Amino acid sequence: MRSNSPGKIIVIGGGIAGLSLAAEIADWAEVTVIEREPHLGYHASGRSAALFSETYGNRLVRALTLASRQAIADGGFAAHRRGALHVGWTGDDAAVDRLAGELQALVPSVRRLSAAELHALVPVIAREATCGGVYEPDAVDVDTGKMLAASASALKAGGGIIRTGEEVRAISPDGRGLRVETSAGVYSADIVVNAAGAWVDVVAGLAGLSGLGFQPKRRTAFLFDAPAGADISNWPLVVDLHEQFYFKPDAGRLIGSLADETDSEPCDAWPEDIDVAIAVDRIEQATSMRIGRPSTPWAGLRTFAPDRTPVAGFDPRLPGFFWLGGQGGYGFQVSLTLARMSAALIRGEPLPADVTALGVAAAALAPDRFLTPAATP
């Protein structure tokens, strides 16, 4: 046991949320990550079309993103300066102007593009079809596989343990700590971190706690070929202003999506044919591209708290039970900062100064905000 550490910490969930926190505290406590699936990042973390965008999400999410930029750069996780483009159509001038003003106030590099400028950037969108758009040039692709592997390596280097293919079945108080029963045995822990993605409320139930109201939402995506002869390497992520679809380059092809958010139970998400078909039709209607039959469709669950802000903090109803969930569609761009914050909370230390300087307070992320007074001891 490390000096001044709580002893043993169990992290439930082997996605980027749990792994990044486990790596952050591995040199301070005895950490074991328990993942039900056969390999790490099986669900949302392994199905992400990850983009680091400083304009994405609500105010708190954007602050967490800003605080993560340096760590993503230092870790070598920024794969490509992609850019992000919100496209407005004929008649959307006022909405595009309004969005440009809002985003420029957050990120000064954001620019309002004319129809001609937008067409020059993404030639498959006709000038006569658009009123221009809002362009964030510094959005970058994130190498999600490298980020997951780096967290796993750092965890192991710090003496941490990873157990895959092991399901948690019960969590209960055990003296001054917690008892975690799994399909492979029993663990004792001083702290249990619930970083189970779409299953965070389910895991809470295993500890006898009511959930906080997390909602998994299915998003479907697919791959398709670029237009013949087109150089798509520097195309940005293209998002419909009304969030009806998006597409972006990926390894010489294009990822397309309906940008859907369909409520779902926690599950191994599977794409619906109708969602793929609608997305194909919308992209074809908006561009000169003809997709035909796309390949390799997939779906993932993006899990949100009721206020769409992540949750990080101890549950006042069960000492030692720590929530880390609701990273939604922002996981890879905020997880490193949430890991630093969560590590500070677990250690009983102040939040990192660079994070608080951006207006982030522990109370804004605490699970308490979803608990009624009667539910807390």
Rank of each mutant, 00 (worst) to 15 (best):
A196N: 11
D250W: 13
V110D: 07
A129M: 02
L148C: 03
A343K: 15
G313M: 04
A363E: 09
T296D: 15
V200Y: 00
V186R: 14
A84S: 15
F77E: 08
E102H: 12
I10N: 02
Q333K: 07
G158F: 02
G75L: 04
A67R: 10
A120W: 02
V203I: 12
A152F: 01
V186W: 07
V238H: 11
L223G: 09
R36Y: 02
A63Q: 15
G252K: 14
V96G: 03
S210H: 10
M1N: 07
G91S: 03
K8C: 13
R340K: 08
L345V: 02
I346N: 01
R47Q: 10
P249K: 03
W298E: 03
D174G: 05
W28F: 08
L241M: 09
V311I: 13
R218M: 03
T32Q: 14
G57R: 05
W298C: 11
S335C: 14
A150F: 10
D275H: 10
A29Q: 00
N4L: 06
D27G: 04
E102F: 06
L241A: 05
I283Y: 04
K8S: 12
D368E: 09
Q333E: 02
G292R: 01
P249S: 02
A366N: 09
A29R: 00
E349F: 08
M289H: 06
V61Q: 08
P6K: 11
R317M: 14
G185V: 00
A279R: 12
A129V: 01
R293Y: 04
A344V: 07
R36L: 01
A17W: 05
A279I: 12
G252T: 14
A343E: 06
L358R: 14
A221N: 14
G75I: 01
A23F: 00
R218H: 04
R59H: 11
T90G: 07
G252C: 11
Q327V: 07
L40A: 05
E181K: 10
L60I: 14
L21M: 03
F370A: 09
Q244P: 13
L40E: 07
V203E: 07
L64D: 10
E243P: 04
R81F: 03
I255M: 13
A157N: 13
P266K: 08
I232R: 03
A184Y: 04
E349D: 13
Y246S: 04
P137L: 00
A22K: 01
A95P: 03
A312G: 04
R317F: 12
I72T: 10
S48Y: 09
E261L: 11
L254G: 09
S48T: 15
E30C: 08
D143Y: 04
